[in-house]
C-alpha cells in the first residue's frame, strides 16, 4: 500500500463507521441549524442588518458544529478503545494525522453544505452566484480549522474535562482564521469584487500552511505517549 492508500484507508474507516451510526453528522447538522435559529432571535436579523451579520452567523454555526465533530474525532476512538489499534497501524504518525484530519474536514464540509442551504431558505440569501469564491473561502477556512482542531482533539482526548479543554485549546489559536473567513465571506456576500478578498485569502493560506507544517513536525510527539 502506498502512503496515500493508507491515509485513505483511515478516512474510509471513519466514513464507514459514520455512515453506520450517523451520530456525528446528524448532531453537527442539527446543531448548526439550531445556531442559525437562535441567532435569528438574538440579533433580530431583519432585512436591514442581515447582510452585515450573516457571514458572522454562518461562521459561528460552522465553527461550533465543527467543534462537535472534532471532539468525536479522537474521542470516539478512545471510547470504543480503538485508539491503540489506530496507533498500531503500520503508518507514520503524519499519515494517521492526515487521515483523521481529512475525515473531520469531509464531515465539516457536508455540514457546511447543509447549513448553507438552510441559510438560503431561512434568510433569503441566494448563494448560487457566489458559489465559487465562497467555496474557496470555506475550503480554506475549514481546512485551517480541521488542521489545528485535529492536533488538539488528539491532545484533549486523553485529558480530563475533554470537551471543555478542546474548545479552549482551539479558539485562541483559530482567531486569525475566523477573522479572515468572516471578513472574506462578508465581502463576497456583499457583492464585493474578488480582488478585495485577496489579502484575506493570503492570511488563510498562510494559516493553513504554517499549521499543517507544525502538525507534521509535532504530531508524532503527541501520540507517542
Amino acid at each position: 500500500m502506498t502512503f496515500i492508500q493508507k491515509v485513505w484507508a483511515i478516512v474510509w474507516k471513519d466514513i464507514t463507521s459514520e455512515l453506520r451510526t450517523k451520530e456525528i453528522l446528524l448532531s453537527m447538522c442539527l446543531f448548526s441549524f439550531l445556531v442559525l435559529i437562535i441567532f435569528n432571535f438574538a440579533l433580530d436579523t431583519g432585512l436591514k442588518n442581515l447582510r452585515e451579520n450573516i457571514s458572522g452567523i454562518l461562521w459561528v454555526a460552522f465553527i461550533f458544529s465543527g467543534l462537535m465533530g472534532l471532539g468525536r474525532s479522537f474521542g470516539v476512538e478512545r471510547d470504543r478503545g480503538t485508539l491503540h489499534g489506530l496507533l498500531l497501524c503500520p503508518i507514520s504518525p503524519w499519515g494517521i494525522y492526515l487521515g483523521k484530519m481529512i475525515g473531520t474536514f469531509i464531515f465539516m464540509v457536508v455540514m457546511e453544505i447543509f447549513t448553507l442551504s438552510i441559510v438560503t431558505v431561512l434568510y433569503n440569501i441566494n448563494v448560487i452566484p457566489f458559489l465559487l469564491p465562497l467555496g474557496l473561502i470555506i475550503f480554506l477556512g475549514t481546512l485551517g480549522f480541521a488542521t489545528i482542531g485535529t492536533i488538539f482533539s488528539a491532545m484533549s482526548a486523553t485529558t480530563k474535562a475533554r470537551d471543555v479543554m478542546l474548545s479552549i485549546l482551539v479558539f485562541p489559536i483559530s482567531v486569525p482564521m475566523i477573522i479572515a473567513s468572516v471578513k472574506a465571506t462578508g465581502i463576497i456576500l456583499w457583492g464585493g469584487a474578488i480582488q478585495e478578498i485577496y489579502s484575506w485569502l493570503k492570511i488563510l493560506i498562510a494559516f493553513d500552511l504554517v499549521f499543517l507544517l507544525l502538525a507534521y513536525l509535532t504530531f508524532g510527539f503527541i501520540i507517542e505517549e
Binding site: 489559536i173 482567531v175 486569525p176 477573522i179 471578513k183 492570511i203 494559516f207 504554517v210
Partner: peptide
C-alpha cells in the same frame, strides 16, 4: 500564532 493573529487583526 501570534504574528498571524496580529496581521489578521491589523487588516
Amino acid at each position: 500564532n501570534v504574528p498571524i493573529t496580529f496581521l489578521a487583526i491589523r487588516l
